[in-house]
Design a protein around this nucleic acid. Structure first.
Lengths: 233, 233, 233, 233
DNA sequence: GATGAATGAGAATTCATTCAT
DNA sequence: GATGAATGAATTCTCATTCAT
């Protein structure tokens, strides 16, 4: 049987207040240490509770982490919707999405990094909760591209998923150095670059490869076909 | 009770052989379990050595992991250079790089996944070693883009780094589901899509659709011929 | 996250009602989980009170458990006395005791099992309270055997305690499989077997009950059959 | 990465020696404290190893416990077979079995007690290992009874299982007080009593077998009538 | 009288790394 | 050079009980 012990001064707070205190402390610690190196004891101390109290409100460390991430997502998502309504034009709207994502990374790189790691790790638990939020998060981008195609501003025949992967993948890779704590970047500038690249593509604009290039290509094709014919049975 | 490890017959193998046995075992275990869950004891058992022996050849677990990754990269890099020499044309060469990357992911998703996680995690030690290899790995892509710009096939004023980030980021995102063990993808098909998107961009092409369409057709033809040649006996 | 317990409507119930609610909830939980795995919070929830309230009525978890067991015993004991008065003859009375015990086990194996464990564990506190009840519970059996010896139906020179231990020990062992949730048994059949064995012993019968006893038995049978005939439709 | 720390003096022993040291220490601690209150740290200290070393040889606390019990059983079983060969006659052999069991309890009551608790608790793990040993342990008794029936010394028509349950149940109940640390008992005396009771039964021995059969019939009749009366409306 | 937030000591388990043999 | 026994620090999670509100 557990013996009663002298206790430290007990401060009673409302459930809501305690939960938010713990979440805030946890956010900090996870941000600074990452999931594995974050200690419950550390979080407890910052939240001014004993470790056991955390378990009154959260099932376990993982649960707490997921809640922190969810909370963070919710903040972002509401922000998106609010701001997006004031922007029109496919290019503008797309740029906003990219810029917002870049700005988020810029504002809280440490937490973003943890998030990318976790969402990628894909443990079953994550799938359900955070995954769905991530889907919601990127859905807006898909919608904008879709509308762009409908209005004729964007060309048809594109895989929407691929466009999304390209945009978010590009942002993620472009910001890895910063996420790792090296260097800096300017969300505005990078957003412009990405929009330009993703809309315009790599190829020399106008119409087509230069006519000269086309001719060279034709010649190559001709000789290749010859080679193939010789090889064919 | 934990089984006593039957005292092995002591084989004296050459240092090279021992190292490669351990590396092979380690590759398997890291692939299956990931870095954290991989046990030195497990690796030792599969390599038919005792734990202590591993420390004769490798400084520590991390060092062993780095070596494994390096080894894997070297295999890929040499493959690249060998094959790339036989391919001409910016589009073709770019497509090959993308296709090769996709194919690598397709062939060994588990190891790729560990790799992405680690490269992202960015502990300083890892950074230096694996990072440099990664740089080499992607350098070829940068070179191709650069040449394309020089020949005028690709438009100038692009950030080469950003192009690279877009390509690799896109591949990585596009294949996450597969890396997580869900679904499948066709490297050939996805490579076509990515090349198309990254070269052509999202926007509806500028002026003459007809010429653009012709050019696109030519490019597709060229790619097809290239593939035929590679597959031909 | 752990669900916040919705603030209950505060009902003011009589002390008796509260206590019996808690006892009932506790009985269920102890039955299902066993002492150690039973949670005060679980009991509180089922009783629709908060944990603290339980401590207003019970000193601690152990005390609550003891009360539950006592309560259960009391129910059984009163039942015994009521029914035993209608039964005459050493064999019949003995058989009833055994049958009743078997039937109790059959009816509520889970609680019986906890009980056996606890009575056996013998922490001092438990000893006093539950032990005394157990003594009362088995005393009736001792009395019957004693009477049997007095009337000459049972042979003298027996250790009454040993007879009791044999009967209850036999029942307990015979029913362990069932208590563990494996298989089933028929109280009627097993009671017959046990009575037969404990009365007749293992040895090939030299002889038989005294003739006087047989005569008495015949008389009882005759009157019983008369009674039955009167009751028959 | 784990930092190397100054170590205490390391004594290297053979696997066998270490295992037996740990087992011995564990046996003591489990005996004194019982399973739950036994601490791994305590066992480690007595075995002069650090806690971690125990986990090199045993999967977990439960595994260690099971091994301790198994080891103990093995000692008893070999003893049985050795001694039983020198004893003839059903009564003598049966008495030996009972006496041996009583003596075992008498010699190491604390460990016996833990054992009874565990075998009764019937967690799946236990079932397989300890259960089988228990079966072997009691099998000898069943065999003796069976032989007695074959030779005509014991009456037929008995449930062997029930006989076994009666014997072991009786011993267990008879010795509970001692197991709990209260009082004492004399294995010789109690063995005599139990053999007498279980062989001779409670009933006063009669004379003529024919009459005995009649009496048994009468008793069964009486029981049947009793039941009818209870069930009658 | 009821509530339920807060307590806090504890204990099992893991495994990379070392180094006596 | 190989072996594998031994190390030991570090961390999560539990839950009966208390007591401020």
């Amino acid at each position: 049987m557990r013996e009663p012990i002298v206790r430290r001064q007990v401060f009673r707070l409302s459930r809501e207040r305690r939960v938010s205190d713990i979440m805030e402390a946890a956010t900090q610690v996870f941000r600074e240490k990452g999931y594995d190196d974050a200690l419950i004891s550390d979080i407890a101390e910052r939240a001014s509770v004993v470790e056991g109290s955390i378990y009154r409100y959260f099932d376990n460390k993982r649960d707490l982490f997921i809640k922190v991430i969810e909370n963070w997502y919710h903040g972002m998502l509401s922000d998106y919707d609010r701001q997006l309504t004031g922007i029109s034009g496919t290019r503008n709207r797309l740029r906003f999405m990219i810029w917002r994502h870049l700005a988020t990374v810029h504002e809280d790189p440490a937490l973003c990094r943890q998030m990318f790691q976790i969402v990628r790790s894909g443990s079953e638990y994550t799938d359900t909760a955070v995954f769905e939020l991530n889907r919601q998060y990127t859905r807006r981008t898909l919608d904008i591209v879709h509308e762009g195609i409908v209005t004729g501003e964007l060309r048809a025949g594109l895989s929407l998923r691929l466009v999304r992967d390209m945009i978010y993948g590009c942002v993620e890779h472009r910001t890895w150095a910063y996420l790792r704590g090296e260097g800096d970047f300017d969300p505005d500038h990078v957003a412009d670059q990405i929009v330009d690249l993703v809309l315009g593509g790599l190829q020399t604009p106008g119409d087509s490869p230069a006519l000269g290039a086309q001719a060279a290509m034709l010649q190559r094709l001709e000789s290749a076909v010859e080679r193939l014919e010789r090889k064919a049975p």
